[in-house]
Nucleic acid binder design. Structure first.
Lengths: 229, 229
DNA sequence: CGGAACGTTGAGTTCGGTCAATGCATGTGG
DNA sequence: CCACATGCATTGACCGAACTCAACGTTCCG
C-alpha cells in the first residue's frame, strides 16, 4: 500500500504539493487496474473523478448520431478530464483503455477543495490544464491546415526525432489507431505510407525506417506551433 | 480614468478578486482601442500580455505554409490567450479585430504573480481556462462529426434559440466569417443555405427566418455536448 | 489448423474546394 | 447626384482529396 501511495506522490502533478494537501487528495482516491478496451467514462456523465494515468494507454473519443471520432491518446502521467472536474460539468468525451492500464481516480470535489487551499497544487493544475488546451489547439491546427499525407509525414518525423533519430523504429500504436488519431481511415493511412515511400520513408509492418530525413522534413515542414515539444 | 478602471473591475473574471490583487493586475495594464482589421498578436510571439475584450469582436486564426484557418471568434468579456500567458510560451494563434474593439492588456508576469497570491483570482483563471478548453473540444467535435450542412443548421438553431426564438433575426457575423468559423468556404455556406430552405429556413441577405423549427431541429440534431450552453 | 482482426489494394462515390462569371450592395470622388 | 470601384454573395462547372465498399493477404492467437 505504501508503494501505491508513493507512485502517486511521485507524479509531476504533485511535485510541489504539500503533504497535507496530498493527504486530502488521496484519502478518497482509488487506484485501479483496467483491462484492454475498458470504457472508463462516457460522455455526458457527471465528472465525479479526475483520472490520472499511471501506466497504459487511454483513448479519448466522441460520438454523435452513430458516428465516432478519436480526439486523442494519452499515456503515463496524463490527466483527463480535468476541465470537466474543475467546472463540475458533464464530460464532453468518452474514454477507453487500449492497453492494460493503471489509473488513479481522485474525487472531483477533493480536487476543487485542495485547489482553493493549496496554491502550489493550484499552480500545477492550471499548468496542466493550459498544456491540455494547447494540445487541442495544436491537434486542431494539424487537422485543419494539413492534408492527410502531410499529417502522416509529421507524425513519423516527430516519432523519429523523439526517439533520437534511430536507424529504424517501431510504431507505438497500431496503424488503425494512428489513422484515427490523425483523422483519417486506415485505408488512407496505407495509401499515405505508399506516397511517402518516394519522400524517404519505408514502412514494413510495425517497423519504420527514415531513409531520407532531410527529404521527409522538406515535405512535412514541421512547425513548433503545431508539432512542438 | 476612474471609469476606465471601473469597467475592468466589473468584468466577471475579476468579480471575486481582492482589491489589492486587482491593483497589482491593473498597475501595468493598458486599455486600448483598435480599429477594424488590426492584428493584435501574431502566432509564435512570446505571450507578454493577457488580452481581455471589453467591446468589439476578435478573430483567432492560424496559418501554415500559406494556408490559413479560423479557429474562433470572441466578443466582450472573453480572454485570449490565457494558456500561453500561464505557461509563458509562444502564442499558438494570431488575433485580429474584425470590428472596432476595446481591449485590455495585462502583463503576463502580473497575471502569473497574482495567480499565486490570490486564490479567488486563481479560481477565476482556472474556470475561465477550463471554459476555453471545453469550447475548443466542442468546436473540434462539431467539425469532425458533422457535415457542413449540419454545422450550418446547428449554428442557425443556436442563434435562433439564444435570441429567444424570434420570428426572424439578423446574422451577427458576415457570411464569409460564419463560413470560416464553421470550417468551410463561403461558396459552400451559400449552397448549404439553399439546402436548408427545404428544411425550414429562409435566408435573405442578413435576415434569417426559421419557418419550421421542429423540422430544422430534426435535421440538425443539436446536442448539449457540442452546441451546449 | 482455423478463425479473427488487422492491413493493403482497387474501384467507385461523395463531399467540399477551386475557379470563374455574375449580381448586388456600399461607398467614394468627380 | 451619379459613375465607378470595391468587396461580398451567389451560382455553375469542374476537380480532387478522402471515404466507402469489397476483395484479398497477413499476422497472430486459440
Amino acid at each position: 500500500m505504501h508503494s501505491r501511495i508513493q507512485e502517486i506522490r511521485d507524479l509531476p502533478l504533485f511535485a510541489t504539493t504539500s503533504d497535507e494537501a496530498f493527504q486530502t487528495l488521496t484519502r478518497g482516491a482509488y487506484v485501479q487496474n483496467f483491462p484492454t478496451h475498458a470504457e472508463l467514462i462516457t460522455e455526458g456523465e457527471s465528472a465525479d473523478f479526475l483520472h490520472i494515468i499511471i501506466s497504459g494507454c487511454v483513448e479519448l473519443f466522441s460520438a454523435w448520431q452513430g458516428r465516432e471520432t478519436t480526439m486523442s491518446f494519452h499515456g503515463p502521467d496524463a490527466t483527463f478530464i480535468l476541465a470537466a472536474t474543475i467546472k463540475d460539468r458533464p464530460y464532453l468525451m468518452s474514454a477507453r483503455t487500449i492497453e492494460k492500464s493503471r489509473i488513479i481516480m481522485i474525487p472531483s470535489e477533493d480536487v476543487r477543495a485542495v485547489f482553493e487551499t493549496d496554491p502550489d497544487f493550484a499552480k500545477s493544475i492550471v499548468t496542466e490544464l493550459a498544456g491540455c488546451y494547447r494540445g487541442v489547439i495544436k491537434a486542431s491546427k494539424n487537422i485543419k491546415l494539413r492534408s492527410s499525407t502531410e499529417r502522416i509525414a509529421n507524425y513519423l518525423l516527430k516519432s523519429y526525432n523523439a526517439l533520437g533519430k534511430p536507424k529504424d523504429f517501431t510504431l507505438e500504436l497500431e496503424k488503425r489507431r494512428i489513422a484515427a488519431l490523425l483523422g483519417m481511415t486506415p485505408e488512407n493511412l496505407s495509401r499515405g505510407f505508399a506516397v511517402l515511400k518516394e519522400k524517404g520513408v519505408s514502412v514494413r509492418g510495425q517497423t519504420v525506417r527514415i531513409t531520407d530525413p532531410e527529404g521527409l522534413a522538406k515535405f512535412a515542414k514541421p512547425n513548433r506551433l503545431i508539432d512542438s515539444w
